[in-house]
Amino acid sequence: MIKLRDLVLTAALAGCGLSSLNAAPLDLASKPEKRKAGQSLIAGQVAGRLPATAPLPPPRPHQETAPSSVPPSAETPGPVLPGNAARGGASPAVPLANIPAPPRRPPQIGLPPAQPAPTDTPASADAPSPALPPAVEQPAVTDLAKACDGVAQMIVKPAVRVPVAGACAVERPVQLEAILIGENRRVTLSPPAVLACATAAAIAAWVRDDIVPIADATGSPLTAIAVADSYNCRPRNRQAGAKPSAHGNGLAFDLGPMTLANKRSLTIRGDGLTVNARQLLKASACNRFGTVLGPGSDGYHEDHLHVDLIPRRPGRGICQWTLPGGDKK
């Protein structure tokens, strides 16, 4: 019995124009040997009738006109993988899946951040280092007094152990030792007065311009002034609970007895000074300072003259010193 496969093959040969097969059909079902011989004969006839090389189909019209977006492989060769020189035929292609991946980089834990590489070449050891700008010279402690106004007319030193912060702070504290009068004369302060710089300058100007002419008019040059008080961190009039004194900030000066070259002493109570001289002294003090307290003012300034630089409104200054034949104002 002829199998269906043999019938299909016979029909295919007939379509190819193999008339000899139709003329002499084979008994493909008789014996296996005859079936194999018939299949070989059919295959030979097919091979003899088919062309050796089949022509390629013509290209599609759009492929002929469309420009290629991919450059030829000869101009831009792709990467050559290891063992895949292949396309030249030297070695078989190696699948990408068989290429081992590189080992994973260990995590950077606990390492310091990478420092950027220096961009400049390090200077040679023999090359001179660039010149630095000169340092600003800081004033020494001994130069503090030179910052005071009128220092050319004073002999001053920086005051030591005087606070510059807090309730009893003194701004630029100095120790006023003498006032220069002209080129070859000085009036010494005994003991030296510890004052704020501004107060020292004001006292020096008062002594030089007003007190010296008044004292010299008595017949002998003024040589020394006793300092009743200067810097002193205390309440007013040394009374507990009172407001802080101007002495506590180096703003006050207490004028004591004045000594002349002939050893005579002049006091604000009238020893050696006429009433007219004391009136001139009072006027000069009240003109220069915001507070003036002398004999008859409050009972605490009977033997000296207190002057200070506490700021006061114009016309509100205190000028109290009782003189014979007049009142304390």
Rank of each mutant, 00 (worst) to 15 (best):
P58V: 03
I214L: 03
K36H: 10
A202Q: 14
Q239T: 14
A127E: 15
Q63L: 10
S30Q: 11
D120R: 15
A196N: 06
R288V: 03
G88I: 02
D229I: 02
G150S: 09
G89S: 08
I310E: 11
N249K: 14
S91C: 00
P71C: 04
S73P: 05
T274K: 12
K243A: 14
L96H: 09
A202I: 01
G88M: 07
M1C: 04
I155A: 07
K282S: 05
L280Q: 15
L50N: 09
V212P: 00
L273P: 00
L13H: 12
A196W: 03
P61F: 04
A147Y: 12
R87A: 07
G48S: 13
P102R: 00
V8T: 10
G219V: 01
R49L: 15
S190L: 13
E64Y: 02
T188S: 07
S19P: 04
E64W: 01
L132K: 09
N98P: 01
A12N: 08
S19W: 05
P59I: 05
R172M: 09
A165P: 02
I99N: 06
P82R: 01
I268N: 01
S30I: 08
S73T: 13
Q39R: 15
A277K: 07
A86Y: 09
Q239C: 05
V151R: 13
G78K: 11
I214N: 01
D6T: 10
H62W: 14
P295Y: 00
P58C: 05
D254W: 04
G241R: 06
V212M: 02
E171H: 07
P116R: 11
L26H: 12
P295N: 08
Y231P: 00
P128V: 04
P102A: 02
N262I: 02
V170R: 03
P79Q: 12
S220N: 04
P311Y: 08
G89C: 06
Q63R: 12
I99S: 04
A169T: 01
L26K: 10
L4D: 12
V227W: 03
Q153E: 14
A114W: 09
A204W: 15
A127H: 10
A277F: 00
A196Q: 06
A165K: 15
A165N: 14
P324C: 05
A140T: 15
L180H: 10
P163I: 04
P213W: 12
S19M: 03
S190Y: 12
C197M: 02
A43G: 08
I225L: 08
A283K: 02
A242K: 14
A93T: 11
Q239D: 08
V136L: 11
C286S: 04
P32S: 12
P118M: 09
V275K: 12
R49F: 09
L132W: 05
T267E: 00
